[in-house]
Design a protein around this nucleic acid. Structure first.
Lengths: 202, 202
DNA sequence: TGATTCACTGAATCCGGATTCACTATGAGC
DNA sequence: GCTCATAGTGAATCCGGATTCAGTGAATCA
């Protein structure tokens, strides 16, 4: 089942890549907790035991996927260009929301898996989150630029809760009504809510 | 291990109650997915097999807990008295937030379990959510009273995401810093955010 | 009182899935 | 070409936990 005409290392790398890609697919399809090792190997077209030539277990392949994901992005979750470094204007809020939304959409499999794994094993979750949000501290600074008395801890957890929960509902589980959103609809809505609350544009 | 001097039905009811209470305790302590049937029976001081005299499995005891929870509350999640039936003023928003917060805090075990169960088994999740939020429709109506163009689906999922995610972080996993919040701090923060966005009180 | 039923009990059984490992095939080194 | 090292293979094994069930004793009923 392995393609031919490649060196040993090439083949090994190929298999590892196939396993990772297969893992992304099955994680997206049925979630992390519901996938068996054999689901991954089957999707990758390899034998069961082959998995263990590359990873110690499900946790490890998830870590590898998260590492890949972060390596691929310039900056972890919320990119932070100099020209959009605060939350005090609608456009800067929108910029952050859009960055989050695109990232979430592009990495559904990893983020679904991360969420499920964190849920079952809080210790693992903390470790993985630490990798993911290593630069939350940057964000906290930006909140300090907002007018009025601001509590960065509260604002940070609120934003995470809102963005992740909203994205999860619309991109992963799907809205009960079956309705779908365009990226712009979602981003605009979240931006408005963060900017001026339930009242919307003033 | 069963108390004496009771009729058969009384004893059975007593055992069932003990199992439910034990389930709440271990769900709160280690989560739904990580608890074994024997964890529940051990905590209840009963034998393993006793569990199956009352419930077909973990799913069923969770359903029973959710049913109890809802029966105990007058109205499901967000109570809705006539005098606070919209989201257009700060005080009405605060009222809803406070209702949610108290409910969440009072029913941590059930809500933790519900979240975990939903995560693994979307079909079960949908069924349970349907029980829980049967009256979401009421809320949607209230959003229509807000000024400006409002989209009830988006507002509803946003509020759920924000409130549940925030509550989960502070009441279940705990904030990474170890910091804790008083109920009023949490409720005020959420109210401000919903009312006027990141800018806080205008 | 004697017979019957019911809930409780916990050891035995069952089951799904993770992990291992003896074996095969092929590229690397000589 | 020959030997060694390595990745791949998948059936066998292992393991944790769910579920069962025959046995026990107390409440119910005649």
């Amino acid at each position: 089942m392995v393609s031919t005409g490649a060196s040993r290392k090439e083949k090994a790398a190929e298999t590892e890549a196939a396993l990772k890609q297969a893992a992304r697919e099955v994680f997206a399809e049925r979630g992390y907790l519901n996938t068996k090792i054999t689901d991954i190997t089957a999707a990758a077209g390899r034998a069961t035991g082959s998995f263990y030539n590359h990873f110690a277990g499900k946790e490890e392949i998830l870590e590898a996927l998260l590492t890949d994901m972060l390596a691929e992005a310039d900056e972890p979750v919320l990119d932070d260009p100099a020209h959009e470094s605060d939350f005090s204007s609608r456009s800067s809020i929108r910029w952050h929301v859009a960055a989050f939304w695109r990232f979430y959409r592009a990495h559904l499999p990893e983020l679904i898996a991360l969420k499920q794994a964190s849920m079952v094993d809080p210790a693992l979750g903390r470790r993985l989150q630490q990798i993911m949000y290593a630069d939350d501290a940057h964000l906290a600074d930006h909140f300090n630029q907002l007018p009025g008395p601001i509590d960065p801890d509260l604002h940070l957890t609120s934003m995470n809760a809102l963005l992740e929960g909203f994205a999860h509902t619309w991109l992963v589980t799907g809205h009960p009504s079956g309705r779908t959103l365009t990226d712009d609809e979602a981003i605009d809505h979240l931006t408005d809510l963060l900017h001026h609350g339930l009242a919307g544009k003033p």
